[in-house]
Design a protein around this nucleic acid. Structure first.
Lengths: 362, 362
DNA sequence: CTCGTTGACAGGTACGTTTTTGCATGATCA
DNA sequence: TGATCATGCAAAAACGTACCTGTCAACGAG
């Protein structure tokens, strides 16, 4: 009477295993595995029979056992910068949401699922999930998470050019420098004489590259830089900084805002100072939000194409996982898109003009 | 000497296993497991020694093996409605992003990670990942995914009251009916004589409950319903519907828009018809976006508090996973919040008034 | 008649843990 | 002194799958 009760530890209480299917179908475990996975040499009759019995028993293979045996989990990590404490900044919401959505779709289409993980290097979360690879958003220099993952031999693809000598498998990014220069040229062509910048105090690559591109442009055309910085994670600070920028004695006649809410912030500040847009002030901001199509006036935005980035990142990662090896890190640059609206055109056009890029296909 | 070559299948090529740690530390496998997991009765010296050796070898336990053995994966599914084909509607972006963010944080805080999964019942994705439970967003009646999960004995918690007799473990939702009635009373108190509604053609619970609440309210106060419906997933259709609503002969003097972009859409339409907000038209829309704080004028919004919903859903799910059993489905109603701004106040206040709530902490 | 050959399956092992059980060893107590 | 007991650890059994290595029959070729 010592071991009458073996209550099937391991959570799958009562669930049918491959062994039960084999018994019910009158074949061996090997045959069941081969029949369900389309391997081995089995007559179609046996294959059908096994499949039918498995269906009848409601058999679902154990993902854990399969992963343990094959070494592939079908899971991809998606690392969000500083998720644990203060989640990713509010200003990146639309960008992140779209990027994650595209990444999820792309992964699912190839049979993988996405796991959201924090950028903290606390092992107790990371080591609890078997990953085949990881997407890292905007990794910092010497990122401990990336280093650890690479040490484990896992492929890592980053959204954003890796700083320093971070050994990522591949990366995808925009050409932020070219985007900013292009955009400033656009404003100058619309008649801007002094272009201001609303930027962030953070040191991430996007902010840094964009700001230095602005400074270079100013130097090239011989304009004094006019900019205000604020901590991008604080939505209120953005409104204050926008106000400061327009309150300056050397007030710019055009402004580019690096972050999503800057458009409405600048618009509100312009109203406070009685500045008409675009007559007195040209406006552009970097955003993925569609609200800027219906503001008064509609605001020109720079889109970083997060959908394409999310898709590309996942494709590269899965390629690496499935053994499509390249030599050296693979780099892929996604073009940005300037969506020109009323706010950046000195003489209002008859129709709202979009940039002459590929119109469809995202 | 027949099996000299066992090239360590299973992906962890070269990775140190618990057996290697045991050998290096001169103890048994059991001792290593106990030392690292804080179980068993070991002197601190042994425990430290084993931990140090494990650290030196860079040992990381295999999540797959642990899951197989314990039956717990530490993974929670997050099911997004109709993700595969056309991802979740653009109008729900901010809501979903915030909800998912809160859910992720709450899960991580309790040692779980979130896996994003599609609502399609294709087994090949679902069966590849070992889940401890699942969060389902707005499940449809007789949802096949939920049914299958429950059949497998997994706890399921839904965001949104389950329709019909869907056997979820627990659910969290707002009281949409009360929120709409409250909001309409607010508009009436501000002087609205005829309140219009911008609603959707979809049959999801949120749209349905909100619309019927509106109709009930109209009946109660003796007002003829004035509403326009449009497919919420099409952002352009929203602008058209807003225009239609204000072009009607029985034009309303106040409008509530059910979806996030309706605020800017209605504002644009009002400008086209020369209507001043709030003097000629009162405006409220349901949104989680902060842009409505800086539009001209700022627009009153109804927040569904997705952060609190995401947190609550995950807490309930993990409680169920970890054996905190309740009898019958657990229901939790999260209060909504009406953030009153200029657009719904007939006599403009001296300062922009925010709702009298706790200013910080969500 | 024997001998490879091929088809159709079964046996058994390994994946890397956790956990139960059990065996020594020394200390404590009747 | 012998019985009892706590302590410190090891052996071994799972967990459920995938795959490698047979085995056995049938069968045509030599």
């Amino acid at each position: 009477m010592s071991r009458t009760d073996t209550p099937r530890r391991g959570g799958r209480q009562g669930r049918a295993g491959i062994r039960d299917v084999a018994a019910a179908a009158g074949v061996s475990i090997t045959t069941v595995s081969d029949a369900l996975n389309g391997k081995g040499r089995l007559p179609d009759a046996t294959r059908r029979h096994v499949r039918e019995v498995a269906e009848r028993l409601g058999y679902r293979p154990s993902a854990a056992a399969r992963t343990l045996r094959t070494g592939k989990s079908g899971l991809i990590g998606l690392t969000v910068t500083t998720y644990g404490d203060e989640p990713f900044t509010f200003t990146e919401f639309a960008y992140f949401a779209e990027m994650a959505r595209a990444a999820t779709s792309a992964a699912l289409a190839r049979g993988y699922a996405l796991v959201i993980l924090p950028a903290t290097s606390r092992h107790d979360v990371w080591s609890n999930v078997a990953l085949d690879g990881t997407v890292v958003i905007d990794p910092s220099d010497q990122d401990p998470v990336v280093t650890e993952l690479v040490r484990q031999g896992l492929p890592v693809v980053s959204d954003g050019r890796p700083a320093g000598t971070l050994p990522v498998t591949a990366w995808v990014d925009n050409d932020h420098r070219a985007a900013v220069l292009d955009l400033l040229d656009h404003l100058a062509a619309a008649g801007a004489r002094r272009i201001g910048l609303l930027t962030g105090t953070t040191t991430d690559t996007y902010t840094r590259l964009s700001t230095t591109a602005y400074l270079h442009w100013c130097e090239r055309v011989g304009q004094d830089p006019v900019y205000e910085s604020y901590p991008a994670h604080d939505p209120c600070a953005g409104a204050v900084a926008a106000d400061r920028l327009l309150a300056r004695p050397d007030r710019p006649d055009a402004v580019y805002g690096l972050f999503d809410p800057n458009g409405t912030d600048l618009l509100a500040a312009a109203r406070r100072y009685g500045l008409r847009v675009p007559e007195d002030l040209l406006l552009v901001c970097c955003s993925e939000s569609t609200v800027y199509a219906t503001t008064e006036p509609p605001i020109t935005t720079l889109s970083l194409k997060p959908r394409r980035i999310g898709t590309a990142v996942v494709q590269l990662l899965i390629d690496a996982i499935e053994g499509v090896t390249h030599d050296g890190p693979v780099e892929q640059v996604i073009p940005t898109e300037l969506i020109v609206r009323t706010s950046s055109q000195r003489r209002p056009p008859r129709t709202t003009v979009s940039a002459p890029r590929s119109p469809a296909g995202d």
